[in-house]
């Protein structure tokens, strides 16, 4: 494992911790999209089915379990915690997730490495992850003012993807015969989804002010 991959994973983990801490400390999930969090849970469940039949490393297994547990913890807070769930912007978080899930599933059936249940579900999880942030970005656009923690959460999620891109370039030049087109193309799309957000995030940071999205 190279340094870019490790940095990517750690940024991903940190983004989730930041979100969980925000929810726990402020007892509020205002500005957080439950749809996006549920999509991530679907992504992790369909991708990490290999926990049952393949072992790569202790690091790999532990990280997968952490991602699964934290995803369901966040959903639990937003749906069941009696204080936190009242702060959820249900009326604003109206993205139709089936418009993401169905096309990703069809694409996974058409473009995959192998026509098996686990391989198609794994491919589906790769496609779905690329667009899972969209409900969150739409919610952000609607509520306009972005609180610092939510902004940092999304910024770290985007950074994690950017670090994975660098990791793939590094692996391409250092590992003989290493290529994974499905992951590369989806990952590039996923990183591009964040570009607009990055622009406004960096602008707010440079001007030392609270982040605002244009109407």
């Amino acid at each position: 494992m190279n340094i870019f991959r490790l940095a990517g994973d750690m940024t991903h983990l940190l983004s989730i911790i930041v979100l969980l801490l925000k929810i726990q400390a402020t007892k509020s999930c205002a500005g957080v999209s439950l749809k996006t969090q549920e999509l991530y849970a679907v992504v992790f469940v369909t991708r990490y089915l290999d926990l049952f039949y393949s072992f790569i490393s202790l690091y790999n297994t532990v990280m997968k379990i952490i991602f699964l547990l934290t995803a369901f913890t966040i959903i639990w807070y937003m749906r069941k915690h009696k204080v936190v769930c009242q702060t959820y912007d249900k009326e604003q978080d109206t993205f139709r997730v089936l418009f993401l899930i169905v096309p990703c599933f069809v694409l996974a059936l058409l473009v995959n490495h192998e026509m098996s249940v686990t391989e198609v579900l794994w491919t589906f999880s790769i496609y779905l992850e690329a667009v899972a942030i969209l409900p969150q970005l739409v919610l952000l656009q609607r509520t306009k003012n972005v609180d610092n923690l939510t902004g940092n959460y999304i910024f770290m999620l985007g950074s994690y993807r950017a670090l994975y891109l660098v990791n793939w370039v590094y692996r391409y030049f250092t590992e003989l015969g290493y290529r994974q087109w499905i992951v590369w193309v989806s990952g590039t799309v996923q990183t591009c989804v964040y570009l607009d957000f990055f622009y406004y995030y960096v602008q707010a940071w440079r001007n030392n002010e609270r982040m605002k999205l244009p109407g």
Binding site: H12, D50, I56, S57, E114, Y164, V183
Partner: peptide
């Protein structure tokens, strides 16, 4: 051809 490579990334 398309070979499923080892899924060592998260």
């Amino acid at each position: 051809g398309a070979q499923p490579c080892e899924k060592d990334e998260l």
